[in-house]
Amino acid sequence: MTPEDLKTLIHQVAEATPEIGPLEESLKWGEQSFTPLKRNVGSSVRIAPRPDGELALMFICHTNLVDEFRGLYPDALTYEGNRAIVLSPGIDADREALKHCIALALTYKLRKRMKRI
Rank of each mutant, 00 (worst) to 15 (best):
N64L: 10
G30L: 09
A103L: 08
E54M: 13
T107C: 10
A56Q: 14
A76R: 09
L9D: 03
I102S: 01
T17V: 05
A76G: 07
L57W: 06
Y79D: 04
I20W: 04
D94V: 02
T35D: 10
A16Y: 04
E24A: 13
E19C: 07
T8K: 14
S88K: 15
A56M: 13
H62L: 11
T17M: 03
R50W: 08
K99C: 11
L104P: 01
K99D: 11
L55A: 04
P36C: 12
P18C: 04
A48V: 11
L9I: 10
L55E: 04
G90T: 04
E68S: 12
E24F: 05
A93M: 03
A105H: 00
F34C: 06
T63W: 03
D67R: 08
F69Y: 14
E80V: 14
P49T: 09
R50M: 15
I10H: 01
A103E: 15
P89F: 00
Q12M: 12
S88Q: 13
T35P: 06
L57M: 13
S88T: 11
R46W: 10
T2K: 04
R46V: 11
P49I: 11
P18A: 08
A56L: 13
I60Y: 13
P49K: 07
P22K: 01
G53F: 04
I117T: 14
E31G: 07
L37K: 13
R113H: 12
K28Q: 15
Y79L: 04
Y73G: 02
G30A: 09
L9Y: 05
S43F: 05
L6E: 03
E68T: 15
G21C: 09
R39S: 15
K115F: 06
A97E: 00
K112V: 09
R113F: 11
D67G: 08
I60C: 11
T2W: 03
W29L: 12
V66A: 00
A84K: 01
G90M: 04
I10P: 00
D94R: 01
D67S: 06
Q12N: 14
D75H: 11
M114H: 10
P89M: 03
R116Q: 10
L37W: 05
G90P: 02
R46H: 08
R116V: 08
R113Y: 09
R116F: 03
A103F: 08
R116A: 11
P89V: 02
K99A: 15
T107I: 10
G30H: 05
Y73V: 03
I117R: 14
A105Y: 01
K99Q: 13
L110M: 12
S43Y: 03
E68I: 13
L37A: 14
T107Q: 12
T2M: 06
I102E: 02
R46N: 09
I85V: 04
I85Y: 00
G42C: 10
V45G: 00
D75V: 07
A93G: 05
K28E: 14
S33W: 04
D5V: 09
R113G: 05
V66M: 00
S26M: 12
G53Q: 04
Q32R: 14
P22W: 01
S43R: 03
V66H: 00
H100K: 07
T78W: 02
T8L: 14
L55R: 01
R39F: 13
G21L: 08
P36N: 10
I60S: 13
L87Y: 00
T63A: 09
L57P: 02
S43N: 11
P36D: 09
P18R: 01
L55V: 07
W29R: 05
